[in-house]
Every structure is written in C-alpha cells, then in structure tokens.
Design a binder for these strands. Structure first.
Length: 890
RNA sequence: GGGCUAUUAGCUCAGUUGGUUAGAGCGCUUCCUUGACAUGGAAGAGGUCAGUGGUUCGAAUCCACUAUAGCCCACCA
C-alpha cells in the first residue's frame, strides 16, 4: 500500500467502477424492495451544503439497506424550476440586449432547452462527486415527456372531478418575474416603513382644500399611499360608535376628486390606526373581499411590471410604484391632505425567487381545491400509515393541512407545462392533448371543420410543484402501468429538509393518495438546515457559504460525508465551519494507516490462523474482547440505522474503529503472544468494520477492502453483506461472554490508571516502573500483557486490601500501585491529596445520606441501591489509601 | 398575533423510556517522534446542565412560569 491515501484518484476510480458496472441499478425481483426518490434539485442549481447533507443521509440509508439484502432503488432527477430557469435564460438574453418577447414563445423555449442541454447536467455531475448511489439509468426530469404526460393527465382528471377551476382572484404577483405566485412562494420579511395618515374630506361638509381642511374630514391610515387612486371606498367597523354617524356618507378621494362611500365592515379593527381604512379592491387581498361583499368597483391602477397605469392619473402614469409613492405623498402634503406620518414596522412579501416586493394583483388564474385532497392525507398520518421522523413535524403538518387554501397553479411564464386548456370563444376545453381538445370542440359545436388554428391554448404554464408533487410515481412510469411502479411504489423513506414540507411533501402525500390510492412513502425523515458558523443562513450573497465541491477537493468526499453525518442531528439545524471537515479527513487517514499496519504485520508474521478453527483456549482475553466489541458494534449499528440516528451511527462506528480497534487491539497485537491468532481476528474484525463504515465512507472502504484482498477486482463492498456479528455457535465456541468483556474493560482501566499515575508523578513513559496490584481476582494470565502495556519492570500481585504506602488508583480490576523510589515534590503532592480527599468527602457525605434515606432504599431498584453501596465502599477505601499516602508526603 | 424548537465544557454538539462522580470532537495544558499513523499517542484542566418554582426517595431528563435566541405560520390597513 502507498504511504498516503490518494482520495482523489480513488474516488474517481470507484465511482466510475460502480456506475459502469451497474451497481446502482436494480430491477424488480423476489426480494423486498427498498426505494427512495431524491428531492430533485433545480436544474439550474449548483451543489450546496444543503444538498450535501440531504443526499449524504439518503446515501447512508440506501447503502445500508442495499447491503442488508433489499432490492434497493434510489431514483435521481432534476426539477425544471419554472421561474428560476426562465430567469437564468432571460438574464443571458439581456446581455444580448434582448427580451424573451423579442424571440417569441417557441424560439425562447428552444433557448431554454439548449441551456438545459448545455448546463443542466452540472448538478447531476456534482452529485456524483458525493458518491451518491443513485440509479442514473433511471434519471428523470420534471419536464421530460413522461412527466409531461403525467401532468396533463392529472390536470384533466382534477378538472373533470371539479377540483380545478379558473377564477378572477387577487393573487400574489411578482412584477419582476411577471407572474403570479402561490402563497407559499411569498416570503414575508420585516420592513421598517411608515404609516401615512391621510385626510379624506367628507362630502356635504364645509370642507375645502389646501389649508382649509378642518373637522369635516376623516383621517385614514395606510402603509401604501400609492394605491390611493385605486380606492373605491373607506370603511369603519359597524360597532365603532365614533363613526356611526358618517356611515353611508361619501368622502372625496384626495388628488382625484372622486367621491367614494363610507362603509361599515367587520373586517376593520377599531383599535388600529384611526379605525378607518381605505378600501382598494384591486390591490389588497382583504380589500378585495370587502369589495366583493359590498359590490365595489375594482380599479387596477398598475401594470404587470409594477408601474402605474393611466387609471392612476395622468401625473403618475408610467411611474414606478415606489417612485409614485414618494410623488403622491409629496402631493398629499402640498394639498394639505397629509395629517402626519408615523414609523411603522410590518411584514412585506417578497418573491422567493428574485426577492422583488410582491404586489397584490387582480387577475384570472387557475386553482386547485385543496380541502378534499388534504383530508385523506391528514388521515394517513393520523392513522400511523405514514410517519414523520422526528414525530413533532406531524403537528406542523396537521396545522398546515387543516388550514389549507386553494392552490394557485397558473404561472405567467413560458418555461413549464403549458396549461392543457383550449378556448373557443367562451368555451373552455380541457384535454390531455390538443387533438383531444379539438375533438371535444368539434363535438360540442357540431362543426367538424374546426381546426387547431381555431382554438387558442391558455398561454400560462403550471407551477413547478404541479409536476414535482407527482414525483414518487411519475418517475416510476405512471400513468403507464409499469413493473417498476408496481414493485417500487410506494417508496419507503422520503428524506428532506424542513423547508419544503408544505411546498412538496404535503402535496406529494395528497397526489399519491389521490392518484395512486396509496401514500407515496412510509416514513418522512426531516432534517435541519445547514447554517454558517454564526448560525445565519448560508447564502452566496453573504459570502458565508461553504462549497461542498471545494471541501471534497480539499478533504475528500468521504471526509465531507462522514463529518456532515457526525455533526448533524435530525432534531435541529446544523452549524458548520471548515475545520469540522478535518475530523473526516483525519479518520480517512487513520483507516488507511491501520490498513497499512495490518498489511505490514501480515507480511511479517506470515501464515495467520483461520478464524473458524479457533477454540476458546486459543484466545486471550483481549482477543475475545475484540470479538465481543465487534459483535456489539454490529448490533448497535443496526439499531441506530433503523431509527435514522445517522449521527449516533457515525459516532459509534468512529469509536469502534478508532478506540476499540486502533487504540486498544492494534496496540495489544503488537505484543500479542500469539500473533497468528490475533491477526486472524484483526483480519475479520477489520473487514466487518469496513463494511459497517461503508455507508458513511464508501470510497476509502472500497479502496482498502481491495487493497487488503478482501475482494477481488470484480467485486464491490457495496454488495457485501452488512455485518450482523457472530453466530451463537461461534460465540459459544470462542467463549465470548459478558464476563470476559467486563474483565478486559477493567484491565484497561488498570492500565489507564497506571498511566495516569505516571503522568501525575512525572514518570516518563520510557521509564520502567515497579507496579503492585492489590486484587483477589485471578489475574495470573494477564501479567505478561499488563507488563507490556504498563511498561512495568515487575508486577507484584498482593491480596485486596493490602496496605501499601504508594500512590495508587482504584479500579474494578484491583488497586494499582506505582512504586515511587526517589521522587517527588512532597509539598505539591500533599496539597493535591488534600484536594482529592475533600472531593471524596463530599461524595461520601451525599452518598451516605442517600443510603440512610429509607425512601431511597425502599423505592429505588435493587441494582441502583447496590451500585450506590458499592461505590460508597470503594470511595471509602480510596480515602484510606489517600490518607496513608498523605503521611508519606507529610 | 399564533405555533414550534433550542439554551449542557472556550466552540460545535451527544446524553433513547427520570437512577453516571454529566460525555464526544475541536481548542487549551503537560509529556511522548528512527518501529501503521504528529492528519498520531498518553495524561490532564475546564460544566452549580439558562433562571425560578413544582412533582419525586432521586431531575440535565417530567410539569409550570420567566429570560434569551432561532424558525415556521398569519390578511390587521
């Protein structure tokens, strides 16, 4: 083996090997299926830490299941990301000085597809760098032909079922993207703004203008003065006695001179502002509803790109909305209409894609009725058919599902699934294809001469999520009846971050149940978000993001994966900084060096024993301990991974490899009296460890498994069996008992105690020392190995309780004494001992109090009481030892 | 305005159903390098488990309140 592990070379080599040999690919057979669909990243995306975390978790689970004998499918793909992708291409066009309208719809779409062909593979390529064992042969795209077909069918079906409708509604509108947005595509952010108090003169009073305004006006508070020209009423609360007298009168809308009524409506809060609110039905969702209730006119004063139109008045027409706000406020002030201004903090909606301030805009859109879809999706979780991990997300899911609003699915974009609705005059024909729509139109009109040219297709496209909510079954072939669909659906686990529970997970639940009659997955595993070291969100603009590809290049993919697994808890967000990835890198190095050691020793020793011929008497207690520790590690990993405790698993396998194998057993092996046996054990244990590790660190484990000859060139550790420990027969044959395990643990405790004594008394490790051990245990067989581990010149065994005047430490193994012979700083020692005695006295006091408490003795489990008694006795003995020692230094 | 979560060593986090003298990694201190590995080994310092009150023989763990931080939802102009 090379002196250093070349991660870059190994990772490139093995990924190609796996992919070229179809190791990620399975087809339906008689085994139990285990399937997972990846949350498809945006095709415009580049790999970020969120992907790295999400996909590492999935790959760990998937690789573990694959090794555990399941027919495993992890299905990859990308999302066509309507707005995001269109924006990218529009930006490129802008550099050429063009807009998408200059190209026209068809040419523009060609450009987007060209872009997709050229750059759409970026993230797909980057995912391979992580080591994902995704079945690339089944890679899908939410806008490929199959998904398009699925989307068309779904739209038609929902329309026929009366669950899709078209309506004139006030929607969230991004003036920059020029499209409607769903409610959850709007991000609310704190805004330090103002509340403008504006005077509206009451008609029929003596109110005049400019400087002559008096009590004959009312004052209206607004955060959006620029919408004033769109006002068609002002409103007060019907129970508000202050204004009872003026309800039904009219006011004059400042600057326009238009007369508008004063209404009473429950929506108005008496306490807020002045208790009077202006009603602008075309520019505010609440006002829209008020307007509907009172039959008000809806005056749209803005263009779809956020400028004022002619209805805003000649002066403001063409102005940007925020420019207009300034101009209008200035005019109000000049006209004497501005009462005063207050600072006011509120929440303002922003487009989740481009961050522009969202406008409420009146327009015709398509909606899906969600309530009927949500009900069975709620039930599926309530009944336990689908489980959230961690469970607490269920409440959040229920809360959202119970308050679900209809889903605005139309987008005024070009890139996306075009809405399959065709118009002929007033008639709408919804069909899966244009031909079917034409046929329907011909039948309806009785005019067989109609052609496609007579029909006009709805220009809008569907929300991207309208395709991705079908992801778990459209990717398996639906609406065709395929073998894959039959075998792999429903999928097993869905792993995703908390931020798309509503966007995606909840909707997949609804679609899966509605169209497939079965929820799309059994477990929904929700993990946190990767944050920067200071806890803030990572973002490119802040410059605080870590690039997984850079980390891979610096530390290796295995290092990235292991580190991220080690520091991630499902329960909370994860803060990361670069240094954390050294853990994984160092671990890789450790594995490599341990392998080198094994190779070297094997060559040195020559023939090593065969594990299956060994009997208990061939094995030392340390040998047995190693085998038991391995057994325990296997059991532990299974339990951990079954409950999705990725972090615990990383820690457990790290500890097993580093502490159990390297720190203790390898050190033991160097001086083992029977190296042929110990190497045989190491050989077996090492391979088991590699397999336990493989889901976390696929590359280095594969490389080492080949280097050490566990596998031949055609084989892969990916398909090796996940270790389950030893058989009952083997355990009996080898005498692997809990007693031996505990015994060796206590021996190690004694070794550690001696080392600590050395450090305390500044006896360097190179000095051979005289050791005494006071114990009644039979430790004769351990003396040889103890001598080596303790670097002892001699070890004398004396009966427990023997009275030796030497520094000592108590262990379960016995009391370990270090002979001093010509040491030490007496004063410092005396002081240290006094400190320790004080500490022990405290413990003994509380301990005695506890034991003399009848309640404790009566109520606590016997084992707990027994344990407390034992500890008390031990500590009392310790005190005696220390007191004796204190005399030495007096 | 509702809801959720967090608060444990200097830092990042474990601590599974209440019973440890509260752990890990990094950082820090001391010692150890020709013998797999200094990306290493050994030993150690460092915490009244955010605060207050309660339940209990016993609380980091359960309950209530408070404080701080973060997230999500929500139409108060």
């Amino acid at each position: 083996m090379e002196k250093q592990y070349d991660a870059k070379a190994a990772e490139a080599k093995w990924y190609k090997f796996w992919e070229d040999n179809g190791h990620f690919h399975e087809t339906p057979d008689t085994r139990t299926p285990y399937s997972v669909v990846i949350p498809p990243p945006n095709v415009t995306g580049i790999l970020h830490m969120g992907h790295a975390l999400n996909q590492t978790i999935q790959d760990i689970i998937v690789r573990w299941r694959r090794m555990s004998g399941y027919n495993t499918l992890w299905l990859p793909g990308t999302d066509h990301a309507g707005i995001a992708t269109q924006n990218v291409v529009e930006k490129a066009l802008k550099k050429e000085g063009k807009r998408r309208q200059d190209l026209g719809r068809e040419k523009f779409l060609e450009r987007v597809w060209d872009w997709k062909k050229q750059y759409g593979g970026t993230i797909v390529h980057q995912q391979r760098m992580l080591g994902n064992s995704t079945d690339w042969a089944r890679e899908r795209f939410t806008f490929d032909d199959g998904c398009n077909k699925a989307v068309m069918k779904v739209f038609k079906q929902l329309f026929d079922e009366g669950l899709i409708y078209k309506g004139n509604y006030i929607v969230n509108w991004c003036p920059r993207c020029g499209t409607a947005l769903a409610n959850d595509e709007v991000e609310h952010e704190a805004n330090h703004g103002h509340l403008w108090y504006v005077r509206y003169p009451v008609v029929g009073s003596t109110a005049g203008v400019k400087g002559e305004l008096n009590k004959d006006y009312i004052v209206v508070a607004t955060t959006r003065p620029e919408t004033l020209p769109g006002d068609t009423a002002v409103a007060v609360n019907p129970k508000d006695e202050r204004f009872a007298a003026i309800v039904g009168k009219n006011v004059i809308l400042p600057l326009t001179g238009r007369e508008i009524p004063i209404l009473a409506d429950d929506y108005v809060e008496k306490e807020f502002g002045t208790g009077i609110v202006k009603i602008t039905p075309a520019h505010d969702p609440n006002d829209f509803l008020v307007g509907k209730r009172h039959g008000l006119e809806e005056i749209n004063i803005m263009t779809d790109d956020g400028h004022m139109n002619e209805l805003a008045g000649e002066k403001y027409c063409g102005m940007d909305r925020f420019e207009c706000r300034k101009a209008l406020v200035a005019d109000l002030e000049e006209g004497g209409y501005l009462d005063h201004i207050e600072d006011y903090d509120n929440q303002v909606g922003h487009c989740y894609r481009c961050h522009e301030v969202v406008e409420s805009r009146l327009s015709k859109q398509w909606f899906v009725k969600m309530k009927p879809l949500a009900e069975p999706a709620i039930e599926a979780v309530k009944s336990g058919e689908v489980k959230f991990v961690p469970k607490r997300w269920e409440n959040i899911y229920f809360n959202w599902m119970n308050n679900i609003q209809d889903w605005c699915i139309s987008r005024q974009l070009w890139w996306g699934h075009r809405i399959p609705a065709w118009y002929l005059g007033e008639d709408i024909f919804v069909a899966e294809t244009a031909e079917e729509a034409l046929k329907a139109a011909q039948e309806k009109t009785g005019n067989a001469a109609l052609t496609l040219n007579d029909l006009e297709q709805d220009p809008d496209v569907l929300d991207t999520w309208f395709s991705s909510w079908l992801w778990p079954f459209e990717t398996l072939g639906w609406p065709e009846k395929t073998e894959d669909l039959d075998y792999y659906y429903p999928t097993a686990d869905l792993v995703t971050a908390q931020d798309i529970i509503f966007f995606w997970v909840a909707r997949m639940m609804m679609a899966g149940i509605h169209f497939m009659k079965k929820p799309p997955f059994k477990n929904i595993v929700i993990h946190g978000i990767v944050r920067a070291a200071d806890g803030s969100k990572m973002s490119k603009s802040k410059g605080n993001s870590l690039d997984p590809l850079e980390l891979i290049s610096q530390y290796s993919a295995d290092a990235l994966r292991f580190s991220i697994a080690l520091i991630t808890s499902l329960d909370c967000d994860t803060k990361v900084n670069k240094e954390k990835f050294e853990i994984g890198r160092n671990f890789t190095t450790k594995i490599w060096n341990a392998a080198k050691f094994f190779e070297m020793k094997t060559a040195e020793v020559g023939a090593i024993s065969k594990l299956d011929t060994l009997k208990a008497e061939d094995l030392s207690s340390d040998d047995k301990h190693m085998l038991i520790a391995t057994e325990k590690a296997c059991e532990k990993m299974k339990a951990i991974l079954e409950s999705y405790r990725i972090q615990d698993g990383a820690l457990a396998v790290y500890d097993f490899f580093w502490t159990q194998i390297c720190d203790w057993y390898v050190e033991y092996l160097k001086d083992s009296p029977n190296k042929a046996v110990s190497l045989a054990i190491l050989k077996d244990v090492f391979y088991k460890a590699l397999k336990l590790l493989h889901p976390y660190m696929p590359f280095v484990t594969e490389e080492v498994a080949h280097q050490l000859g566990y596998l031949n060139a055609e084989e892969t550790i990916m398909k090796a069996d996940y270790p389950t420990g030893y058989s009952a027969a083997e355990k009996a044959e080898w005498g692997l008992t809990e007693e031996v395990y505990e015994f060796v643990n206590s021996k190690r405790e004694a070794i550690t105690a001696l080392r600590a004594l050395r450090a305390e008394y500044k006896v360097t490790p190179s000095t051979f020392v005289k050791v005494s051990i006071a114990t009644d245990k039979d430790i004769a067989g351990e003396i040889a190995s103890l001598k080596k581990a303790m670097r002892a010149e001699s070890i004398e065994v004396v009966p427990a309780g023997a009275d030796l005047a030497m520094p000592s430490k108590m262990t379960a193994f016995g009391t370990v004494y270090l002979s001093l012979e010509g040491l030490v700083d007496k004063q410092a020692e005396a002081k240290r001992i006094a400190g320790e005695l004080a500490k022990l006295a405290g413990f003994i006091k509380t301990s005695e109090a506890k034991l003399s408490n009848e309640n404790f003795v009566a109520h606590a489990p016997a084992a707990v009481v027994e344990d407390a008694r034992k500890k008390l006795a031990e500590n009392k003995e310790k005190v005696q030892q220390l007191e004796k020692l204190a005399k030495l230094f007096a």
